[in-house]
Simulated scan of single mutants.
Amino acid sequence: MTTGTSGSPGVLDLPVGSTERLLALLDGRRLSPAQRRIGQFLIDHLGEVVFMSSVDLAERVGVSQPSVTRFAAALGFSGYPALRDALKGIVLGTVGDSPEEARRNEFQAAIAAEQANLEVLHRLVATPDRLIEAGRVLAECDPLVVLGLRLSLPVAQYFTYSAQRVHPDVRLISLAGSSASDALLQAHQAGASWIVAFLMPRYAEEALDVLDYARELGMKVALITDNPLVPFATAADIMLPAGVGSRLVFDSHAAPMVLASLLVQAIADAAPERAQARLEAYEALSEARDYYRS
């Protein structure tokens, strides 16, 4: 790292052509007055901006923090962190000559982040005892309750659909409020002792309410979330973390989806004869009903 001509820390010297590359990012964009102010600040202070958070930049320019986020989106980036990464590349002379290549590198970076999440998951299951134990207790729980609200719902739906093929009674709670309480009470009265909860960022407060009620009923919680240090981790009897990708407009859930599949496998392995019988029955039904095209 170098310092600017002023000699003050936190300011990078700019390579030849850096201003032109930045102007290329701004070229042709329909920007609001506030966004134009941000763009001009970038041009005047590029060597400093790469060290600033969105809050810092907003304060220096005199705009709101959401204005900075919208500015990044107007340039075609998923958010300010992605824009700042591209600006760092400009300052270090490592990005391509066009805005299109900068955004293409952003897509590659998003995939690389997911690969890192999968590598962490790979290390987690290198010692599979916790996953195996989760499969055992969930296989024994009948009925088995699954919780997934808002953006966590697609992962919960995938788990539920798959688990229903190897477990006799899997019930998904996908709505909050009184509907969730009714479903949870009914399942508990039918014998449910565990709830599998998928809670990914942003963590829905209403999902935490469902977990609180499950604990009131005496149920245990198998929690699948992105970070083992989340504040509500104390609600979990079994914690299975899987990181989410946060470099795009919406989080991506590659690792949680893989973990959901692993957990279904663990449930099947815990009761192999039952799982095999149910899978064969489903295959016979799908053939008789022509569910799929060959």
Rank of each mutant, 00 (worst) to 15 (best):
M1K: 08
T3M: 09
G4T: 14
P9C: 00
V11S: 10
L14A: 07
E20Q: 07
L22E: 05
L23G: 08
L23M: 11
L23T: 12
D27F: 07
D27R: 12
G28V: 07
R29D: 01
R36T: 15
R37C: 00
I43W: 00
E48L: 09
V50T: 09
V55A: 11
R60A: 12
V63M: 00
S64E: 07
S67R: 09
F71E: 05
A72L: 02
A74M: 06
L75M: 02
G76E: 00
F77V: 07
S78H: 05
S78L: 03
G79S: 07
L83R: 14
R84V: 14
K88H: 08
K88A: 09
G89Q: 00
I90K: 03
L92R: 13
G93E: 00
V95A: 03
S98K: 03
E100M: 05
E101S: 15
R104V: 09
N105F: 09
A110D: 11
I111P: 04
Q115N: 10
Q115I: 08
L118W: 07
V120H: 14
L121D: 11
H122K: 13
A126Y: 02
A126I: 06
P128N: 00
P128E: 02
P128L: 00
R130T: 09
A134V: 11
A139R: 08
C141V: 03
C141A: 15
D142M: 02
D142R: 15
D142I: 11
V145L: 09
V146Q: 05
S152A: 04
L153N: 14
F159C: 05
S162N: 12
H167K: 05
L172W: 07
I173G: 06
I173N: 07
S181A: 08
L184W: 06
L185V: 14
Q186S: 14
H188A: 15
H188I: 02
G191R: 01
W194T: 05
W194E: 03
I195W: 03
P201A: 05
P201F: 01
A207D: 10
A207S: 11
D209G: 01
L211Y: 02
Y213D: 00
M219R: 08
M219P: 13
M219V: 15
A222Q: 02
D226E: 14
D226C: 06
N227L: 01
P228D: 00
P228V: 01
L229N: 12
D237S: 11
P241I: 01
V244Y: 00
G245N: 05
S246W: 02
S246K: 15
R247T: 14
A255G: 08
A255I: 04
M257S: 14
A260K: 15
A260V: 10
L262G: 10
Q265G: 10
A266H: 04
I267L: 02
A268D: 05
D269Y: 00
A271Q: 15
A271G: 07
P272L: 00
E273M: 10
R274E: 06
R274Q: 12
A275F: 07
A275I: 14
R278F: 01
R278I: 00
E280V: 10
E280I: 10
A281C: 06
A281Y: 02
E283S: 07
E287H: 08
A288E: 12
D290N: 15
Y292C: 04
